[in-house]
């Protein structure tokens, strides 16, 4: 602490401290705690809040599992289905993203000349100056029934009738994969960049194939970067809203869309909070489990 003050001078050090504490406490901890609290309370009109009916209850969590009291089903198949769909799709998107980004990151980090690498990074970054919603609409235009891709395929005679990419959710997967590509590429790049090129050559000299060199040397070296990128992509994909709203087929729901509905359309903030907490807890647990499985520590991931 003292050395922090010495290094930065009193004014800047105080500013940093205040800013960090403000950010942590007011923008993260308090809202989340408020949501947590809200999720355990009944959805009451403002007048009744704090009254005798305002007691802690599990009703929203129960609703997620068993559905409304009037429902005949044993479980809330719809919401649980959407939830599982979201998690599974997010996992798939993360894996596709990783498979897609790993070669790019490897190329930039180890194979490209410095100039090519800079150009590639620019080409990757610039599209992200456009906001997420616009990018999603652009992808929608690409994949629409009379969109660019269909027109090209029709023109080439590869298909005879337009493919409904939206209904097949291909547009959604593409949009989601593309949306967080940078969050995968940069941690991967950082990890791969520190790999000594001589190790690749040594492996080659010892007779190793490219695949084996990656499997035995490059991937183990980049493990922390892979974990870090995958974690971020998974979390953000599972929590994405704009892209699914624009790109999902009419009968596909993203779990965040349900949350959004509870908050806004149905004006049930408590249930919305409960659903958010479920998403958060399950996502975090899932990530921790995966890290355990692949023997990565949190320290490595946030490095």
């Amino acid at each position: 602490m003292n050395s922090f003050y010495k290094k930065n001078g009193p004014v800047i050090a105080t500013f940093f401290l205040v800013a960090i504490i403000f950010w942590l406490v007011f923008l993260i901890v308090i809202p989340q705690l408020y949501m947590l609290d809200l999720s355990f309370r009944p959805n009451l009109p403002p007048l009744l809040r704090g009254g005798p009916d305002d007691v802690y209850t599990l009703t929203h969590y129960k609703h997620f599992l068993y559905g409304s009291e009037t429902s005949k089903d044993a479980y809330n198949y719809v919401d649980i289905g959407v939830f599982l769909d979201t998690i599974i799709t997010a996992v798939l998107v993360t894996i596709i993203n990783l498979c897609f980004c790993y070669p790019i990151a490897f190329y930039i980090a180890k194979l490209a000349t410095p100039n090519t690498a800079r150009l590639l990074v620019l080409a990757l970054v610039i599209p992200f100056w456009i906001n997420e919603l616009l990018r999603s609409f652009a992808i929608r235009i690409l994949f629409a029934g009379e969109g660019v891709i269909n027109n090209i395929l029709l023109e080439l005679g590869l298909i005879s009738t337009a493919v409904n990419f939206i209904a097949l959710d291909i547009a959604l997967y593409t949009g989601l994969t593309y949306a967080y590509i940078l969050l995968m590429i940069f941690p991967l790049y950082n990890a791969l960049e520190t790999l000594d090129t001589n190790q690749l050559e040594a492996a080659k000299d010892l007779g190793s194939s490219t695949v084996r060199t990656h499997w035995r040397i490059v991937i183990p070296h980049a493990k922390a970067g892979i974990a870090s990128g995958s974690t971020m992509v998974f979390m953000l994909t599972a929590g994405a809203l704009a892209t699914p709203v624009v790109l999902s087929s009419p009968n596909t729901y993203w779990f965040t869309q349900l949350i959004y509905q509870w908050f806004n359309m149905n004006d049930n903030w408590s249930r919305g909070s409960a659903y958010s907490i479920i998403l958060l807890v399950v996502s975090v647990t899932f990530v921790l489990l995966m890290m355990r499985l692949f023997k990565v520590t949190i320290g490595e991931v946030v490095r």
Partner: peptide
């Protein structure tokens, strides 16, 4: 290089840090 009857020892050795000594030696 993988098809030549040569073997190169690099200036910085380029041992594989995440493998045991025996795994390094037996990598080929």
């Amino acid at each position: 290089p993988n098809k030549r009857p040569t073997s190169l020892i690099f200036q910085n050795l380029a041992l594989f840090p995440l493998m045991s000594v025996a795994d390094n030696i037996a990598f080929s």
